[in-house]
Each structure stands twice: as structure tokens, then as C-alpha cells.
Amino acid sequence: MKKKVLLVVMALILVLSLINIATAKEQKHFTGIRITFFPGGNPGGPFASVVYRGARAAEKDLGCKVDYVWSGWNPDKMIAQFKDAVARRPDGICIMGHPGVAAFAPLVDEAEKKGIIVTSQNTSLPPIEEKYKSRGFGYVGQELYPSGVTLAKGAAQRAHLRRGDRVMVWGLLGQETRGLRTKGCVDTLKKMGMKVDYIEISDAVNGDATLGTPVFTGYVSSHPDVKLIIIDHGALTATAETYMRASRRRPGSIYIAGFDLSAATVDAIKKGYVGVILDQQPYLQGYLPILQVCLTKKYGFSGLHIDTGAALIDKTNIDFVAPLAKQGIR
């Protein structure tokens, strides 16, 4: 008799556990919504991996199903992949805006006609955002040109530059929209009276920061008087210590400024190889676009425009955010 009672109790416990599991699943607000998400770079990259973690956290928290598409920061590849995503007809697509308005506009029109919600992160597409804001097209990321201005001013001040000093900006002016951040850096330094050299980040270096070593060392050896180098790329900023060591330069002998936090960048700041970075909080650029699509799909909310890039981080405040960078959150 006791065995029968025990078996009944165990069966009830099992049934209740299954009910609790089912209820927990039912409590996810956005179960059943399908989203295609672009983290931007390559799996494991210092910036794209943080974006990915944010998106994965949103997927887990909200209950939606997300497919991730990696592009190696290649705008042409992003366009081809977007076309493929539209053909699969998900509920929403979260895009990186690097290819620019001209390339994306007709494709977003097509997606919207098919009832697909589109929103953006990292690189804004203002005319498209304005056109489809009421249908959920938002933006999560830095304001590009102002971010460049902010970093250039902060770096010049910290490096104690004087009018006529030589500086170099290594960036992406060749990309229609993404290049606005580079332009903000260049314009600001020129207005301050600096002698500005500019190097475009090649497609190869854009996809693999280690390939930038000979570019950096070659420039530094031919311009030994350079006082400041601004690197407009998160993965390249994370590789700055490697570049400096390869150039046989001591920490701080050239003031390096860049963008985005990573474990490598934290170490470089602490060692003095990197002076200051602007943190655009890529985790939010992963989490919030997923939430945007879910809110629009279920409740019809319009697009939200969220600026994530405002904080300058240097040796005076790195200790606060360093543990979060190690975890891949900042």
C-alpha cells in the first residue's frame, strides 16, 4: 500500500513539474515570433560577439525564435543575405545599416510589402527609418557623426595636442552611412588645426584586424612624428597593442583612441597602449532590436530611436566596466 501511495505521489509531482514547465513556456510574451538578426561581423569577433550575446539574451527572455546571419562586416554580403532573409519571410529582420540607404531602400520596400517588420542597429538609415517608423522601423546604436566628434575632441584633449600636430585617422569614409563616424573624427581634428592623415580600412582588414599590422607599422615608420591615431573600428582598436608592439613603440608614445570595449581593449587601456575609447554598448544593439520587432509584431508599436554611444572610457574609469567587458556585456 505504501509503495502504491509513493508511486502516486511521485506521479503527481512529475505531472505538476510538467505543468509548471509548460506554464513557464506559455508565460513567454513573444513565443512564435520568428526573427532574422544580423550581428554584423564574424562569430567570435570582439564587437559582433557582444551584439550577438545581447540578441541571444533577448531571444531567451522573450521567447521568440531568432536566426543569426554573420556578414564579416561586408556590405555587399549583407545585401545578398538580406534578400535571402526576405525570401524566407520571417516576422522581422534586424539589419546593420552599413550598405547604406541607396542599397537598402528598395529591398526594405519589398520586405514591408510582404508584411515583414524591419529595424536597424549600429548604423542608422534615417530616410528609411522615417518612412517606416510607424511600422516598427527603429534604430539602436550611436549617432554616427556626433560620436566621431566626441571621440576626436576627447582624444585631442587627453593627448595634449597643439595646432599643427600630426594625427592619423584609420577609418571607413568609403561607406556611405557608416563612414559618418570617421568623417566626424576627421572634420573635428581639421577644425582644431591638426595635420590630418587618413587611411581607409580595406575590406580584408575590415574582416580580419590582424591583417592591419603592416598598414599600421608602415605608416608609423614613415611618419615618426605622429602624435595621435584614431582607429574607427572596434576589432582594430582591440588589436592596437599588437600594432604598437609590432612597431616597437612603447605604451603611450603614440596616443591611440578608438571605439568599443572588449577584453583585449580593457587590457590595452590598463597597459597604456590605448588612451581612450567611445563605448557604444553593443549588447544593447543586440537586445533592443529583438524587443522592437516583438513589440511591433504583437502590439503594433512604432519604431524606437535609441542612442547607445555616449561614454568615453579611459584609465580613470576602466576598472568599473572591466568586469562587464570580460563577460562580453560591455
Results as ranks from 00 to 15, higher is better:
F320E: 10
G136E: 11
S49G: 09
W70I: 04
A58Y: 02
I231Y: 03
Q281L: 11
E112Q: 11
F137Y: 13
L151F: 09
V266K: 12
T308W: 08
H160Q: 15
T217S: 13
M78T: 05
I269G: 11
V51F: 05
V276G: 10
A48T: 09
A322F: 00
A159Y: 07
G97R: 00
G174D: 12
K271N: 13
K133V: 01
E130G: 03
A87R: 05
L161N: 04
C94W: 00
A85H: 00
G45F: 06
E112M: 10
G286S: 03
G309H: 09
K191D: 15
L161D: 03
Q27V: 00
A156C: 05
L288K: 12
N74T: 02
D279I: 03
V9C: 15
L14C: 13
I290D: 14
I117Q: 03
G179K: 11
A24W: 08
E200W: 02
A311G: 00
P90H: 07
I201P: 00
I117G: 05
G41W: 01
D307T: 04
E241A: 14
K270Q: 13
V215W: 14
L236A: 12
I231N: 08
L14K: 09
P106D: 15
I269T: 04
P289N: 12
G141K: 07
P251V: 08
G286D: 02
S147W: 04
V149S: 07
I117P: 01
L261C: 10
A156I: 00
P43Q: 11
P75A: 15
A246G: 07
I35R: 01
R166H: 08
I35M: 02
A159H: 09
A48R: 03
Q81W: 01
G44Q: 03
K270F: 10
P323R: 06
F104W: 05
G303L: 03
L172G: 07
R249Q: 12
S202W: 11
V186W: 09
C64V: 03
A235E: 13
Q142D: 12
I256G: 05
K65F: 07
D314V: 02
V149W: 09
A111L: 00
H233W: 12
G193K: 11
M96F: 02
M10Q: 13
